[in-house]
């Protein structure tokens, strides 16, 4: 195996484009090294992005935030501006692994690992985040939900990398929240994850919402029907029940070692309600 540590994005792109064999990007490494250890990956080349200074930055952009691909979960949690605007995205990223994993893991890596159970992805999807993809043919901007195409697979072309996740401007009376269910209190992969991002008007009516589910389908789901259940309501019990029903209806999970179909379908709705209530409170609505 060859280990390469470029110091610019251009250099990284040309290394990726020119590499032969199995070439993997190393951001935090908390998935890649586990795969290598478990004989699920045996790359010929690893390209480490952490020596690229630009990718280590959290930068204001168009009223929102550009989070570099090598920014760790811990660094996001320590960034007051980001936490204030996107508490759900940050809390979702901060749920990945242990304190130790937080010191390494990245949101972009979590996205490109393409696990349907990735914690930060539903939160990014609900937030309307986009990935900035850089490659031999230039730069393109892609909604994050279009990056994973199947478990372990992404829409990135050869030579492409995500250099940043861009979170949009957070409007007034708006916030987000992410909840996941795990058997223990820490250290597990999400059995179900749910993110809700919403905006309220002055009297507390929900004017916009995005709801996303993890671990209930081959890729993270954006659930428009769940958002519609909230929009235009004051998020009373009936609206929350409709939200839960929409999430349970959208969930198409499998039975596996982490949970059953029935469990996931039910809990998707439970978490959606709970996350919506938290997001509402954060947005300045009723507690």
């Amino acid at each position: 195996m060859q280990y390469l540590a470029p110091t610019t994005v251009d250099e990284a792109v040309s290394l990726l484009a020119g590499a032969s064999g199995d070439c993997r990007i190393l951001a935090g490494g908390t998935d890649l090294l586990v795969r290598m250890r478990s004989d699920m990956a045996d790359p010929d080349t690893v390209v480490d992005l952490k020596r690229i200074d630009a990718l280590k930055q959290i930068t204001p952009e168009d009223g929102g935030w550009r989070v570099g691909a090598a920014v760790s979960g811990a660094e996001m949690g320590e960034h007051e501006g980001l936490v204030a605007d996107w508490p759900g995205v940050v809390e979702a990223t901060n749920l990945i692994g242990s304190t130790q994993v937080q010191g390494r893991c990245t949101m972009a890596g979590n996205l490109c690992n393409a696990s349907p159970a990735a914690d930060s992805v539903p939160a990014m999807v609900a937030a309307g985040a986009v990935a900035r993809v850089v490659g031999p043919n230039g730069t393109r901007v892609v909604p994050v939900e279009e990056i994973p195409t199947a478990p372990g697979r992404t829409s990135l072309e050869k030579g492409e990398l995500i250099d940043a996740i861009i979170l949009p401007e957070r409007g007034v009376r708006s916030s987000d929240a992410y909840l996941r269910f795990i058997p223990r209190t820490e250290m597990d992969i999400a059995v179900v994850g749910c993110a809700v991002s919403l905006s309220l008007d002055e009297d507390g009516t929900c004017t916009a919402a995005r709801v996303s589910l993890g671990a209930v389908a081959p890729t993270v789901l954006l659930v428009p029907a769940a958002a519609e259940a909230l929009i235009g309501t004051k998020m009373n019990d009936a609206a929350l029940d409709a939200l839960a029903a929409a999430c349970s209806a959208a969930a198409k999970p499998i039975d596996d070692k982490r949970g059953t179909v029935d469990f996931r379908v039910h809990v998707a709705g439970v978490l959606a309600k709970r996350a919506a209530v938290i997001a509402r409170k954060r947005a300045g609505g009723a507690a």
Binding site: A5, L26, L33, K50, A74, Q100, V101, G103
Partner: peptide, 18 residues
């Protein structure tokens, strides 16, 4: 567990080259 530039990490999840 070790620290790298003061940050707590698992040394099994990091390459020596890093």
């Amino acid at each position: 567990s070790v620290t790298v530039d003061g940050r707590l990490v698992c040394s099994c999840l990091m390459l020596g080259a890093e």
